[in-house]
Design a protein around this nucleic acid. Structure first.
Length: 740
DNA sequence: CGAAAGGCTCTTTTT
DNA sequence: GAGCCTTTCG
C-alpha cells in the first residue's frame, strides 16, 4: 500500500517534510489525523526510522488510542514500539523512571483536582488562613498558573502584584511541601517536574533527546508554556518537530493554553516549514460556510499574511435549522422528536446524532427527556466516574497501599467506613504528628509505643494502622483484583455502602471499578497496582466513550473537539450560556466563546441544528433569555425555513431573526412575545390499550411489567418495571413497546 | 462520636 | 437544585 496515495497535495507535503521543524495549520475536517498517522508510517516504512525514535503527543488518551489503531493498519506490529500518549501520561512515565534524580519517589501518587483542593484546605488550616477569604479554587488556579508558567513559589512571590498574590505564594510554598511529604504530584507537577528534571540533569535529557528523534504534537494550539518547554527540550537536538494545530479551535486558554506558542515555535525555529490544510472533507458546503462566517468575525486570524481559507468539494447539503422553543424541556423535546423523525425516515441512525451544550448542567433537561421518551443516549461525563465518592474511597485505600505517605488518601479513609475516629481524634493525631515533625502516618506507627491520648482515642487509631499494614503486607503477594477484593472485604465496604443513600448504585460502581482492575490481571502485584492507579488518575470521560454505540451522544462543546457526527444539535444558543456570561465583558474570552461555537458547528457532517429556549431555569430560577449574539453571524441564506409541524407561521421566523438585536427580555408579556416555532405535541402513533399488569418488551430495556398508566397531554405515560433494569417512565407514542 | 437537618454558595470549559 | 459546610441532637 502506498502511503502517499490518496493524499492531497498539501497533505502529501506535510507527510514528506520529515527533516526539520514543521508547522501544520489544519482546519477542521482537513484530514489532520490522517496526516499525522501517515507521516509516522512514512517515517517508519519509507525512511527506515525505528519506531522507538518516534514520539507523538495527543490531547486525550482517546486520541492516542485512535492513532495507535490507525497506525496499526499502516505499520502493523511496529506500532507497539511507538511512544504515543498525552503530555501527562508521557511525563508520568518519565518521572517514574527518572524522577529519583530530583527526589521524586518512583511510587508517587497523582492528585486530581479534588485531591488538590482537599490538600489546599489543609494547607490553609495550617497557615491559619480563612478559606472563605481565600477560596481554595482561586488559590488552586493561581498555583496551577504558576506551575504552567514554570514559576517556583519564590518566582511567583516576586512577580506578585497584589496582597492575594502574596498569600497565594505562601500557600503555594506550603502546599508544595505537603505534596512532597505525601509523595504526591498534582497534574501540573507531572509536566513541571519533568521540565525541571531535564533542566537539572542534562545527561538524562540527552538520553531522551537521542531516543525521541522525531516529535509530533497534535492540538498544538492548546498547549501551554510548560508543554512547549518540554517539546523544545526533547526536540532541540534533532529539531525534527512537527506541530499540528488550528488557532481557530483554541478553546483552552483557561487551562493556560497559549496561542503564542505558535509564534514562539516559528521564532525558535526560523526555518520552520508552514503547511496549510484547507480542504475540508467532513462537512457540507452549508455547514462549512456557516462556520467560516462565524469565525471570520474573529480578530487576527492572519498567519504570516496568509488567511486560512477552508473549502470543500462536498455537496451543498441541507440548510441550518434554527429553533426557538419556550422552555429547555421543549428544547429537549424538539431534539428528541427531530432525531426520532430523522431516524424513522432512515435519514440517519441514532448513533449519528449528537447534542452539544456549553455547560454540563444543561445535560440534565436533555437527559430527562431522552429517558422519558425511551430514546437511548450516552452521556459523555456529568459526574465523572472516577470522581464518585465510593470510587474515590476505594482508590484512596489502594493509593495508601501503594504509598503510605499519601496524606490526602489517609485523611479520606481514616474514618470510612466509620470506625470511631472522629474529627477530634483526627485533629489530635495531626497536631501530635506536627509537634513531632512527622507525617500523620508515621505518628500512627509510633502510637503503639507512645500513647499521648486516652485509650478510647488511641485504640481505633492503632487498629486502623494495623489494618493498613496488613493490607500493605498482603499487597506484596496478591494480584490486583485479589487485593481489591481483600480490601473491600476487610473493611466491609459492601455492608457500609448499602446503608447510605443510593447504596445499590454505588455498589455497582465499585463492581465497575473492579472490572477495570481486572484489566491489569496480567501484571505482577506491585506493578499492577501502580499501572492501575496511573490509569485511573489520567483517564478522562471522553476516553471511555464507546464507538458506534446505537445511541445519541450528549456532550459538552469542549469535549466534542476532535469528534464528528452526521447530525449535530447545539442547544442553549443564548447570550449568557453561549457565549457564557463569565466571558461576556472580556473581548479575549469572547473570542474564545466564538471559537467554541465554531468548534461545535464544524463537528457536523450533514446537518446542524441550533436551538434555544425562550425561558430557562438557571440556578433554580426561571429566566427569560436573550438569543445568542453568534446567531447574528450566520448567513441568512443558510438558515432553513421552519420545519412543518414545528412552525406556526413563517413570518414568525422572520420576526425572530430581526428581533435578535432587540433582546426579548424587555417584553412586557412573556407568553405573547413567545410566538415563534412552538412545538406541536409529538403525534400519537402506537398503542393506548395497555393495562396495568401487561407484560411488554422494549428494544433497549428488555421485558417488563406495566405498573401504572396515566394520560399526559395528548399522550399516555406508562410506568414500567423492567426485569433487572429498574423502573422507567415511557411515553407510549414514543417508546416502541411490544405486548408480550 | 455520628447521624440528621438546615444553611450556605455557586455553577464554564478538563488533563 | 446540589453539594458542601456547620450546627444540633441523640
Amino acid at each position: 500500500m502506498d502511503i502517499l496515495a490518496e493524499l492531497n497535495h498539501a497533505q502529501r507535503e506535510a507527510v514528506e517534510a520529515i527533516d526539520g521543524p514543521v508547522l501544520i495549520l489544519a482546519g477542521p475536517g482537513s484530514g489532520k489525523t490522517r496526516v499525522i498517522t501517515h507521516r509516522i508510517a512514512y517515517l517508519i516504512r519509507v525512511c527506515g526510522v525505528s519506531p522507538y525514535h518516534v514520539m507523538a503527543v495527543t490531547f486525550t488518551n482517546k486520541a492516542a488510542r485512535e492513532m495507535v489503531e490507525r497506525l496499526g493498519q499502516l505499520v502493523n506490529y511496529a506500532v507497539k514500539d511507538l511512544t504515543i500518549g498525552t503530555f501527562h501520561a508521557l511525563c508520568s512515565r518519565i518521572l517514574r523512571r527518572e524522577g529519583e534524580a530530583i527526589g521524586i519517589d518512583a511510587r508517587f501518587v497523582i492528585y486530581d483536582a479534588a485531591d488538590q483542593i482537599s490538600l489546599l484546605k489543609h494547607s490553609l488550616q495550617e497557615l491559619n488562613l480563612d478559606p472563605k477569604q481565600y477560596a481554595p479554587v482561586a488559590l488552586s488556579s493561581a498555583i496551577s498558573s504558576a506551575k504552567n508558567n514554570l514559576l517556583s513559589p519564590d518566582d511567583y512571590r516576586q512577580r506578585g502584584r497584589s496582597y492575594f498574590d502574596e498569600i497565594a505564594a505562601r500557600v503555594y510554598e506550603h502546599y508544595q511541601q505537603r505534596l512532597r511529604e505525601s509523595g504526591a504530584l498534582d497534574f501540573d507537577d507531572l509536566l513541571m517536574m519533568t521540565v525541571l528534571l531535564f533542566r537539572q540533569n542534562p545527561e538524562v535529557l540527552s538520553r531522551y533527546q537521542l531516543l525521541y528523534r522525531h516529535l509530533l504534537v497534535d492540538e498544538f494550539q492548546d498547549t501551554n508554556l510548560v508543554q512547549y518547554a518540554l517539546i523544545k527540550q526533547i526536540g532541540d537536538k534533532y529539531r525534527n518537530i512537527c506541530v499540528v494545530g488550528d488557532p481557530d479551535q483554541s478553546i483552552y486558554s483557561w487551562r493556560f493554553a497559549d496561542l503564542r506558542n505558535i509564534l514562539s515555535f516559528e521564532n525558535d525555529y526560523p526555518d520552520t516549514k508552514i503547511i496549510f490544510l484547507e480542504q475540508n472533507y467532513r462537512s457540507t458546503k452549508v455547514i462549512l460556510e456557516t462556520a467560516s462566517q462565524v469565525i471570520s468575525v474573529s480578530q487576527s486570524r492572519y498567519h504570516r499574511g496568509k488567511l486560512k481559507q477552508l473549502w470543500t468539494n462536498n455537496e451543498a447539503g441541507e440548510l441550518v435549522t434554527v429553533v426557538e422553543t419556550y422552555t429547555e424541556q421543549e428544547e429537549a423535546q424538539f431534539v428528541v422528536s427531530e432525531i426520532e423523525r430523522l431516524v424513522s425516515h432512515g435519514q440517519c441512525s441514532l448513533g449519528d446524532c449528537a447534542v452539544m451544550y456549553r455547560t454540563n448542567a444543561q445535560s440534565r433537561a436533555i437527559e430527562e427527556t431522552f429517558i422519558r421518551y425511551g430514546m437511548p443516549y450516552r452521556l459523555v461525563a456529568g459526574t465523572r466516574f472516577y470522581e464518585r465518592r465510593e470510587v474515590k474511597d476505594i482508590i484512596a485505600y489502594l493509593r495508601l497501599i501503594q504509598n503510605r505517605r499519601d496524606s490526602v488518601s489517609l485523611l479520606r479513609v481514616i474514618n470510612v467506613p466509620p470506625r470511631g475516629i472522629g474529627e477530634q481524634s483526627q485533629t489530635r493525631l495531626s497536631v501530635w504528628a506536627k509537634s513531632l515533625g512527622m507525617s500523620s502516618y508515621e505518628a500512627l506507627r509510633l502510637l503503639a509505643k507512645e500513647t499521648p491520648f486516652s485509650p478510647h482515642i488511641t485504640k481505633p487509631l492503632a487498629a486502623f494502622y494495623d489494618m493498613l499494614e496488613k493490607l500493605i503486607e498482603r499487597s506484596q503477594e496478591l494480584s490486583l483484583v485479589d487485593l481489591f477484593d481483600f480490601v473491600i472485604g476487610r473493611i466491609d465496604y459492601k455492608g457500609y455502602i448499602f446503608n447510605v443513600p443510593d447504596g445499590e448504585e454505588r455498589w455497582d460502581n465499585i463492581l465497575e471499578l473492579r472490572s477495570v482492575a481486572q484489566e491489569y490481571r496480567g501484571l505482577p502485584p506491585s506493578e499492577g497496582l501502580t499501572a492501575f492507579l496511573e490509569g485511573v488518575a489520567l483517564v478522562s470521560d471522553i476516553d471511555n466513550m464507546e464507538e458506534g454505540a446505537s445511541a445519541a451522544t450528549l456532550i459538552t462543546l469542549h469535549k466534542a473537539k476532535g469528534l464528528e457526527f452526521p447530525v449535530v444539535f447545539i442547544v442553549g444558543m443564548e447570550d449568557g450560556l453561549l457565549p457564557h456570561f463569565r466571558s461576556i465583558d472580556d473581548p479575549t474570552q469572547m473570542e474564545e466563546e466564538r471559537r467554541l461555537f465554531y468548534v461545535g458547528v464544524t463537528r457536523a457532517k450533514k446537518k446542524i441544528y441550533l436551538a434555544r429556549a425562550f425561558r430557562r431555569n438557571l440556578m433554580g430560577r426561571s429566566m427569560i433569555t436573550v438569543p445568542s449574539r453568534f446567531l447574528n453571524d450566520i448567513p441568512r441564506d443558510k438558515i432553513a425555513p421552519m420545519l412543518s409541524g414545528w412552525q406556526e407561521e413563517k413570518s414568525a421566523v422572520e420576526a425572530s431573526l430581526s428581533s435578535w438585536s432587540k433582546p426579548s427580555i424587555y417584553s412586557t408579556d412573556v407568553r405573547d412575545s413567545y410566538s415563534r416555532n412552538r412545538i406541536s405535541p409529538i403525534p400519537s402513533i402506537t398503542l393506548c390499550n395497555l393495562k396495568v399488569g401487561d407484560r411488554v418488551r422494549h428494544s433497549q430495556f428488555g421485558e417488563g411489567v406495566v405498573v401504572s398508566c396515566q394520560s399526559v397531554k395528548d399522550d399516555m405515560e406508562a410506568t414500567i418495571a423492567f426485569d433487572g433494569q429498574g423502573v422507567k417512565k415511557l411515553l407510549l407514542s414514543f417508546a416502541r413497546l411490544e405486548k408480550v
